[in-house]
């Protein structure tokens, strides 16, 4: 089978040209004698018939095919492959590298935090003394690619004031798949409207749906009683709390 294929291959390489020579006779329309290499994947009936339809006007027979030496052929193939690959891969690789931009570059999502990355949210006075969580927006200049949007809500947090003016801050994004959790007074639970994750007042998991408890955020209180939060987003869906970006 293999041997036969090889013969046919060789035959095609040279035979095609032989046939061309036969074709090049003065007649305008000529039916080619079909050569009998049709019993194989390299079925060239169609190719032959194409030649037969060509109105060929030249009368001189074609010269014999250039007998390529194996060495020249090898160099030709190697050169073609190398040059061809270089030419096509360069724009492709450049394009892919460009596409990788989000992974190659750190992009902050907002601007306007203090030197340590804290945003001012509210004052101790505005937080209930019984530790009930309250939701607050964080306002900063939102950055989106080339744009800056002044004074936008860049995230929301739940804050609880604990005895001794200690602050507990939660990122209100559910660590399951990123919906916003809602504190429910009646059950004293943080509930997620998407897949029913629930969390206790301390942010601990109350069911097996979320992979971890609510993500706490760093906070600080200054001399004027202003509460500052270092806002971060965390990877959803995994057990380990890891900041994004």
């Amino acid at each position: 089978m293999v041997a036969k294929g090889r013969i046919v291959w060789e035959h095609l390489r040279t035979g095609m040209v032989l046939r061309l020579m036969e074709v090049r006779v003065p007649a305008r329309r000529i039916i080619l004698p079909k050569l009998s290499i049709v019993d194989h994947p390299f079925d060239n009936t169609e190719a032959l018939s194409r030649f037969s339809e060509n109105p060929l006007v030249e009368t001189t027979p074609l010269p014999p095919t250039d007998p390529a030496t194996p060495r020249r052929n090898f160099l030709g193939i190697a050169g073609s492959v190398i040059c061809g690959s270089l030419a096509t891969l360069t724009p492709l690789v450049a394009g892919i590298a460009f596409f990788m931009d989000p992974l190659l570059r750190r992009k902050p999502n907002f601007k306007g935090a203090d030197a340590d990355g804290f945003l001012s949210v509210t004052t101790l006075r505005d937080l209930p003394d019984d530790g009930t969580p309250l939701r607050f927006p964080l306002v900063a200049d939102k950055l989106d690619a080339w744009n800056i949007f002044k004074a936008q809500v860049v995230g929301t947090v739940y804050l609880r004031k604990m005895p001794g003016d200690q602050i507990i801050a939660f990122n209100d994004t559910c660590p399951h798949l990123g919906c916003k959790v809602e504190f429910q007074e009646s059950s004293q639970l943080f509930l997620c409207p998407c897949h029913a994750s629930s969390f206790g007042l301390g942010g601990e998991q109350k069911n097996k749906i979320p992979p971890r408890g609510l993500d706490t955020l760093e906070s600080k209180t200054d001399a004027d009683g202003r509460v500052w939060i270092r806002y971060q987003d965390f990877q959803c869906g995994v057990e380990k709390k890891g900041a994004i970006g």
Binding site: R13, V17, L20, T60, L62, P63, P64, T65, D66, P67, A68, N73, G76, I77, G79, S80, I82, C83, G84, A87
Partner: peptide, 16 residues
């Protein structure tokens, strides 16, 4: 009158 060549690899090389 010159010998016949083939697209692969002669012409492909030049093209590349």
């Amino acid at each position: 009158s010159k010998p016949v060549g083939t697209f692969w690899p002669d012409q492909v090389l030049m093209d590349a």
